[in-house]
Design a binder for these strands. Structure first.
Length: 296
DNA sequence: CCTTGAACCTGGGCGC
DNA sequence: TGCGCCCAGGTTCAAG
């Protein structure tokens, strides 16, 4: 489920219940996810106050009042769910039945904060997610953080930057855009969507978007804008569902209803005036969806 | 350096 | 209903 917009959606969903709250108890229901939990994981978190929730790429960063930072990655199937006492007691509250999935509830934060008591449950059927601990001053040098490329939100992503990273790169655009060392946070869906928006073939080599002088071509500027736009739109779509804090996992806000190419194999291209059909190909072992007619 | 493929896991969908 | 196969939003690591 989680690419950058979904992680941002999770962060915003968790914020009211977690920020400023004290972790009264931490339940760790198995010894590992993708990696074993850190040494003294429970002891280092229980009793601490959560000072802030941040996000870097697809990592959720939970800052504690002793400068400890919990790095949480959701892998392919991780999600957070807020079970807030105040919400639970609201008349007309719709109880979400999660019983089928409960066996994959691996970590539970019992918190008490400005918004009251809540249980924050981390669920992850495939267990590709993980949690690590570091400190705020060591965060930027952390092995999982230090090599990350530009954030595709806000003003951090520029065509000049991409030109410098794409120059001489024979790899197809699909692979270049999935590379977290170049752009941090894009995943399979939004790469497909951004390439469709900018009419670029996922098979084209990255270097073809850079001039011989190392400057970005017009098409690279278009791609840069497309990436920013698709990420911004997805965050907005996710954010809109978060008025309902009962579902912090981003499910409701997921961007799937507005996919133009992802998972649309065999369906007509949605571009005005294009009569193409969306194709699915495999690039470096992963599905790519695109319109061979208008994406060149 | 670069690229590809396998690995880590579980569950859902589909064909038979 | 069941079995086997393929697929899935991510990342790392080994091998060529």
């Amino acid at each position: 489920m989680p690419e950058l917009p979904e992680v941002e959606t999770v962060r915003r969903g968790l914020q009211p219940a977690m920020e400023g709250a004290r972790v009264e108890r931490l339940e760790m229901r198995r010894p590992d996810l993708r990696f074993p939990f850190p040494e003294k994981f429970v002891e280092r978190i229980e009793g601490r106050r959560i000072t802030h929730l941040q996000r870097r790429a697809k990592y959720l960063l939970i800052g504690l009042d002793d400068e400890t930072v919990l790095i949480s990655h959701l892998g392919m199937s991780g999600s957070y769910h807020v079970d807030a006492e105040a919400v639970r007691n609201t008349p007309g509250h719709f109880h979400v039945d999660r019983s089928k999935n409960e066996k994959h509830d691996h970590v539970v934060f019992h918190v008490d904060g400005p918004a009251g008591k809540a249980r924050i449950v981390y669920n992850d059927p495939r267990r590709f997610g993980f949690m690590l601990l570091t400190t705020s001053n060591a965060l930027d040098d952390h092995p999982f953080i230090r090599d990350l490329g530009a954030e595709p939100v806000g003003n951090a992503l520029h065509a000049d930057y991409l030109a410098s990273r794409f120059a001489g790169k024979a790899a197809p655009l699909k692979a270049a855009l999935l590379d977290q060392k170049i752009i941090a946070g894009l995943g399979n869906i939004y790469v497909c969507e951004a390439l469709w928006r900018s009419r670029l073939s996922p098979r084209r080599s990255a270097a073809t978007l850079v001039t011989s002088r190392g400057r970005p071509t017009r098409r690279l500027e278009d791609l840069t804008q497309a990436i920013r736009a698709v990420i911004a739109a997805a965050i907005e779509a996710g954010g809109s569902s978060l008025q309902d804090h009962r579902q912090a996992d981003g499910t409701l806000g997921y961007f799937q209803h507005s996919f133009n190419v992802y998972d649309r194999e065999g369906e007509p291209c949605r571009r005005e005036g294009c009569s193409g059909t969306i194709q699915r190909i495999v690039q470096s072992g992963r599905s790519t969806f695109y319109c061979p007619r208008c994406q060149r």
